[in-house]
């Protein structure tokens, strides 16, 4: 406990704080990529009725436009980046100890990437390929 406090000076956070080091910047990029992922998903969901009605073969539809294609491509890159950052955080997020030693964070991260690759393979060859008749 103190005698009444002398007035202090409280500096404000500058608007450019996220440019002051590379890690802050990458953090902002990571957050921003999530916005793209969400936006793409929302648009895609709203377009689902049209897609099931055959919008991909209709050149006038939104999902067939070059703009959507470009947006999807950018979003894909961002989603991949976001997924990469998320999987790399697995070891930070999960603490597992079996016996005397905890499992190393790197192993947990690797397990996530392997699971990701497997899931991609399964979706691509078990569900998507038969569906498009390949």
């Amino acid at each position: 406990m103190h005698a009444p406090l002398a007035p202090g000076y409280r500096p404000a956070l500058s608007n450019g704080w996220w440019l002051s080091n590379r890690r802050y910047f990458l953090y902002m990029v990571r957050e921003l990529t999530a916005v793209f992922a969400a936006l793409w998903a929302i648009i895609f969901v709203t377009q689902l009725p049209q897609i099931t009605a055959g919008a991909y073969s209709n050149p006038a539809s939104l999902v067939s436009s070059p703009l959507w294609f470009a947006f999807s491509l950018v979003s894909l890159a961002f989603v991949l980046y976001h997924a990469w950052t998320a999987f790399n955080a697995t070891g930070t997020l999960i603490y597992l100890r079996m016996g005397p030693k905890p499992i190393a964070g790197g192993s947990l991260n690797a397990a996530m990437f392997i699971a990701w690759a497997l899931a991609t393979f399964v979706i691509a060859f078990v569900f998507v390929t038969p569906a498009i008749g390949g």
Binding site: H2, L5, A6, G8, Y9, R10, P11, L13
Partner: peptide, 14 residues
């Protein structure tokens, strides 16, 4: 950074 400065290089951590 992020703390009130009491004096010079001394910040308030209460």
């Amino acid at each position: 950074a992020n703390f009130p400065v009491v004096r010079d290089l001394i910040v308030d951590i209460d």
